[in-house]
């Protein structure tokens, strides 16, 4: 596997954020946003190419899970929580 570029990692981060935003359920959505931010920040200083590749491969698997689960989440409706902002058209 060739060395990872900054653009690739940022692209991966973007994919995670976008897919997490697709969740209908507030709790799931924010959990995945939080987890994505935390794990990318935790590994931001990793320089070892081997470790980076391992992290990247695992992240791709996680992204697959995230994509599938967000699709499943869209098949169900969830009650809005009190902490969620009202729909913008009501403002």
């Amino acid at each position: 596997m060739s060395s990872l570029t900054r653009t690739q990692v940022l692209g991966l981060y973007k994919q995670f954020i976008k897919n997490a935003n697709n969740f209908n359920d507030y709790n799931f959505k924010n959990y995945f946003l939080r987890r994505t931010r935390a794990s990318f920040r935790e590994n931001r200083d990793v320089k070892d190419q081997e470790k980076l590749n391992l992290l990247y491969t695992n992240a791709l698997k996680d992204l697959g899970v995230l994509k599938r689960q967000s699709l499943i989440s869209q098949m169900y409706t969830f009650d809005k929580l009190v902490v969620e902002p009202l729909k913008t058209e009501h403002e």
């Binding site: 900054r6 653009t7 690739q8 692209g11 981060y13 973007k14 954020i17 935003n21 990318f40 931001r44």
Partner: peptide, 26 residues
């Protein structure tokens, strides 16, 4: 930082209903 910038660009993408290619986003 670079990760925050990505998130901001995602927010802008959603507002304008567009997609920044990865190369451009950087």
């Amino acid at each position: 930082d670079s990760l925050d910038t990505v998130e901001l660009l995602v927010a802008i993408e959603e507002d304008f209903d567009i997609q920044f290619p990865d190369k451009v986003a950087d």
